[in-house]
Design a protein around this nucleic acid. Structure first.
Lengths: 266, 266
DNA sequence: CGGTATTTTGAGTATCGTCAAGGCCAGTGG
DNA sequence: CCACTGGCCTTGACGATACTCAAAATACCG
């Protein structure tokens, strides 16, 4: 039962390069160099705790690869995930104060860690860095509120549809989550059913039935628990209450383009 | 049915002073003066739209009095409230871009409006102002995630308890929401049952039954739809899954103190 | 006092939570 | 190679809770 044990065993640590972190684009070379000088890379195994709840971390983190979950453990032991962190996301209170949520690895992940003190010093000197953080935070706030709208749906299948739409749009291009081939549109579900239940505020069984419901409606096909094919993306977006048809069309067009390229390759 | 009509009729406009806005404390006199020079005050009636969804506002707002709701209208006409704005809260994308959510007055409210252009100019010149905004935003992000945890409860009565706890803690001291007298602890519910349903992701009927459930458990007593008395605040916090007993104790102590003062006044 | 909006209550249906059982898959050891 | 084991996912049955529609009760306001 405790195979996915929450251990604090020391992760692997090494040096890291930051030039390919999208969140830090626009900072300019010198600043990046300075950031690199206070940065170390670490990797975590599934279930390892990256940052415990209530601890004031001595570093700011930035996800390089893999997926982390930001979660809170309730008084009765239930866990609630308030968000997933993917490639490029930053975490750890940028300014100060204890963390309200724990950060755990949902799979094998690697992150960059900036030592707090020098990071804050840098922040006090660089307008660009501070502005970057502000924009980042505002963006996260917006996404958090969008996620609230998804969470407040009565039917689990609708919440699941919302999650899948988020995978298609926000997590587009991250970690091979989305794959397109010969007219097919496939999604890699990056977390277990249990995590999905904690994320959508329900139970594993309901998640399972929700996948079943979407399948019955012809929206998706569950190939393996972690690989589904989207059969009708328009209906999926519609179910999720997402009227932003532009993103659907852009997505479909992108698929088409890719498909064409695949065909050309034949 | 449309008495609470969403109208865009022009609100009352006048000059405003900022010295008593808690969110702006620590800015220093000169900065405050500059802010005041680009600031106008406006008042809105219940139901009036302060900022429409998808519009890029030409001002940044700051609530002075009353309550606003931040909401999204779904494709099927359902409305979802993602947060309430009270005294001191700021809104309107600080940097740029269209608003993802509409802002509407939930009651009679007055706000400060800063013209965007000069505000951004000021932001570019003042480290303090930018830092203030960053801290503010980080704080809001934390609150948004706490709210998510409340929203993902199965039972409506638990979500309602969570909301009442938020009223007791976060909105403590705002707009006479909380009143203490002769050992009694009374809460003014600042929004209608419909808004409460939209906020908690459920229907009006369920909200009504949730109040009934809390009453049956002896946690509260509904005096009028907008005024309830808290009979057992400890149980209320426990129901909401809030193990932060310190805040409860502080709250109760505060009540006690106030009660003593009341008794002394006799 | 009357009229309207809001809130509450009731009855029937749908969905979810819970508990239990079964199936699938990978890893292990014989 | 096969059986066994443990973890994860799925399915089924039943009680609990929420949604829907309808109607009654209450509060609000002129």
């Amino acid at each position: 039962m405790l195979s996915k044990e929450n251990s604090l065993t020391s992760p692997t640590v090494e040096r890291c390069g930051l030039s390919d972190v999208s969140a830090l684009h626009g900072l300019g070379g010198p600043l990046l160099t300075e950031l690199e000088s206070i940065c170390t890379k670490a990797t975590f195994q599934p279930g390892q705790i990256v940052l415990a709840e209530g601890m004031a971390p001595d570093y700011i983190g930035c996800v390089r690869q893999g997926i982390l979950r930001m979660q809170k453990t309730l008084y009765d032991g239930r866990q609630q995930i308030v968000g997933l962190l993917v490639e490029g996301d930053m975490f750890g209170h940028v300014i100060e104060g204890p963390a309200s949520f724990a950060i755990e690895a949902a799979g094998e992940t690697s992150i960059c860690m900036f030592k707090r003190k020098p990071f804050e010093a840098l922040l006090n000197r660089s307008l660009k860095l501070e502005r970057l953080l502000l924009l980042n935070t505002l963006n996260e706030l917006d996404r958090a509120r969008d996620w609230m709208v998804i969470l407040t749906n009565y039917k689990t299948s609708v919440r699941l549809a919302g999650f899948l739409v988020v995978l298609c749009t926000r997590y587009f291009g991250v970690d091979h989550i989305m794959q397109v081939g010969s007219g097919r549109l496939e999604l890699n579900i990056p977390i277990t059913r249990v995590d999905l239940a904690h994320l959508l505020g329900t139970r594993v069984e309901s998640i399972s039935r929700a996948f079943g419901a979407l399948t019955k409606k012809g929206v998706i096909e569950v190939k393996t628990p972690y690989l589904i094919e989207i059969l009708d993306i328009e209906k999926l977006f519609e179910m999720a209450g997402n009227e932003d048809l532009e993103s659907v069309k852009a997505l479909m067009q992108w698929c088409q383009t890719d498909e064409n390229q695949s065909l050309q390759g034949q």
